[in-house]
């Protein structure tokens, strides 16, 4: 998960819990009057920027996706659904989808379940200082950009100077050394592993904050009843952060379908397109292969996938809201 996406992650709990607040403040919900129009000045800058630079391009993208377009001459030809038809037959498009799915699946394991368990472990520590220190330490990679983290891990995986192979050699399991990013079957997983390293601390921090909000009396009462730490986690913590976990999951998946930076920096989608994801395949199709119409079709696919996930998220958060 990118820092950018992590920031989105932070929004989700808000989105989830915030949905009932989508209406204007009840105290102020009155009839529109002439004076009300002038108050639009408050939201105009935000709406204007979003309309021009977020929504309009979305619509334009749909238009582009039915064109074939020569960047050199600027000529555009209407080709209908041809770009989409080609997309569904393109093995690298599907390879990208599969890689995005791997990204999503592995991120759910580490950044949702793993982070939740880790947060529970940290919050279970007795020393407040250790709790704070560990949370902060785990977070550091999230403050490092994906570009830096990607370059760093490029070198860590590098067959000749990297520490990963050197560590494997040192541990006496030299038979496992390989060019992690240079092999078709390991490249995408090398990138995903880097992304877990970079992002798990952020999610842990989020869960830790959520866990802190669970009233301590619940734990104390359970402890008095002789309930052990494991059962306390499963019977108290887990249900109470369940809503948040589900939402984190949806956001993680959504983020996984927007991956671009780390793949671009670490492999550029190679070797042999084995680590291509939708974002990089869009980039390559458009900016390298001059096929902007096709790239727009891929963009539409990303749009449909992320929008469905967002709708799922909204629907879910409306249905299952746990109050505490």
């Amino acid at each position: 998960m990118t820092v950018a996406n992590s920031a989105r992650a932070a929004a989700v709990p808000v989105a989830g819990a915030g949905v009932p607040n989508l209406s204007s403040p009840p105290a102020r919900a009155g009839r529109k009057d002439a004076r009300g129009w002038r108050n639009l000045i408050w939201v105009l800058p935000a709406i204007g920027l979003l309309a021009a630079f977020v929504y309009l391009p979305l619509v334009q993208n749909l238009g582009f996706s039915v064109l074939e377009w020569d960047i050199y001459s600027g000529g555009q030809t209407f080709v209908g659904a041809e770009n989409y038809a080609r997309m569904f037959e393109d093995p690298i498009f599907w390879k990208s989808v599969v890689n995005n799915l791997w990204y999503a699946g592995i991120s759910i394991v580490f950044q949702v379940f793993g982070a939740l368990a880790l947060a529970a472990l940290i919050e279970g520590l007795r020393s407040d200082r250790w709790r704070r220190t560990l949370r902060a330490v785990y977070f550091i990679p999230s403050a490092v950009s994906l570009t830096v983290a990607g370059l760093l891990f490029y070198f860590i995986y590098e067959p000749q100077m990297g520490i990963l192979n050197a560590a494997l050699d040192g541990a006496g399991i030299g038979q496992f050394t390989q060019a992690w990013l240079g092999q078709e079957n390991t490249a995408i997983f090398g990138i995903i592993a880097m992304s877990q390293w970079q992002g798990f601390g952020y999610c842990t921090l989020l869960f830790a904050v959520a866990l802190q909000r669970i009233p301590t009396e619940l734990y104390e009462a359970a402890a008095i009843d002789g309930v052990g730490p494991f059962r306390r986690f499963f019977s108290i913590s887990l249900p109470l952060v369940r809503e948040m976990s589900s939402l984190m999951m949806i956001v993680t998946v959504s983020g996984a379908f927007q991956v671009f930076n780390e793949v671009m920096v670490m492999t550029g989608g190679g070797p042999n397109n084995s680590s291509q994801v939708l974002g990089t395949w869009l980039y390559r199709s458009g900016f390298v292969k001059n096929d902007f119409g096709y790239a727009s079709a891929i963009a539409t696919a990303i749009f449909v996938i992320t929008l469905s996930l967002a709708v799922l998220q909204l629907w879910y958060s409306r249905r299952r809201r746990v109050e505490w």
Binding site: L22, K32, N39, L50, L58, A299
Partner: peptide
């Protein structure tokens, strides 16, 4: 804190931006 017309629509318009991937808007 201010009464504005179509405030609900405005709110949804702003917050829905959260769900949109920048990649999608890139080429336009």
């Amino acid at each position: 804190r201010v009464r504005i017309p179509f405030s609900r629509t405005v709110l949804i318009l702003i917050l829905a931006g959260l769900m949109l991937a920048p990649t999608v808007a890139l080429i336009p």
